[in-house]
Simulated assay, not measured.
Amino acid sequence: MSFRFLPDQPLSCVRMPAGQTVLLDPALRPGGSSIEVLEGIARVYCPCEETEGMTLAFLQPGDQLRTDRLCSEGVCVEALTPLCFRSETEACNDTGFDPVNEWTLQLLRIRHLGSAEQRLHALFGLLVRRLGRRCGPWCDLPFRLTHERIGELIGTTRVTTTRLISRIRQAQLLEAPAGEPRLRLAPSLVESAPLAAA
C-alpha cells in the first residue's frame, strides 16, 4: 500500500486529489481530536497487513473521524473524489453518532446477506442512499470502486463481482459513463435493495 503521513501539527485544510491516501497515526494525534471532512468523499480503511486494506467506512462533508478510536497501527483515509479535510478539530461528543461505527455496522450487515448478488445489490443501494443523489432518471454515485474493492466489501472474488456487475449492466440498471469517475444506477435498483429501510 502506498500512502503519505499526515503531518503532526493541526491543519485547517488538507487537500488531496482522488486516489491519494494518508495514514493517520494515533500516536501522533492528541487525545480527543478528530479530522473533519469539508469537501469530497473518502474511504477509511485499515492499513494492517492481516486485513489487506479492509474498508471500515466512507466519509462525506461534515463527518468526523476520531483519532483516539483507531487501532494501534492507525487508519488510512483515501480520497475517492477530490478531498478537503481539517485535522485541527476537537471531536464532537454531543450527537452520540459516530459515522465510522455506523458504516462498519452497515457493511457488516451486508456481509451477512445470503448470496453475493444480494450483497452487491445492498451495497449499491447503501452507497447511493448515503453518498449519491438523484439526477433525472438516474441515481449518480460520484466515484467508482474497483471490482476488487467491491469484492472485498461484499466478501467475494473480483471475478464473481465482475460477473454480477455485468448482469446488472445488461439489465440496463447500471451505467459507467466513459471518461467519467462516476456510476449511474437506476432508481429501481436502489429502491429495491436489501436492507434499504435500515
Rank of each mutant, 00 (worst) to 15 (best):
F5G: 03
F5I: 08
L6N: 09
P10A: 14
C13H: 13
V22A: 07
L24C: 13
P26Q: 08
L28D: 00
R29F: 01
P30N: 05
P30W: 07
G31L: 14
I35S: 01
E36Q: 14
V44G: 02
P47S: 08
C48I: 05
E50R: 15
E50P: 00
T55E: 04
A57T: 07
R66K: 08
T67P: 02
E73R: 12
E73T: 15
G74T: 11
A79W: 03
T81N: 09
R86E: 07
N93R: 12
D94P: 00
W103C: 14
T104Y: 11
E117K: 10
Q118S: 13
L120W: 13
L120V: 12
F124C: 09
L127T: 08
V128P: 02
R129S: 13
G132I: 06
G132Q: 03
D140S: 14
D140W: 02
F143P: 02
L145G: 01
T146I: 03
H147I: 00
I150D: 00
L153A: 01
I154C: 01
G155I: 04
T157P: 03
R158Q: 13
V159C: 03
V159D: 02
T160V: 12
T160D: 03
I168G: 00
Q172P: 01
Q172T: 15
E175C: 14
E180P: 00
E180T: 01
R182T: 04
L183K: 01
L185R: 07
A186F: 01
V190Q: 07
A193N: 04
A193F: 07
A198E: 12
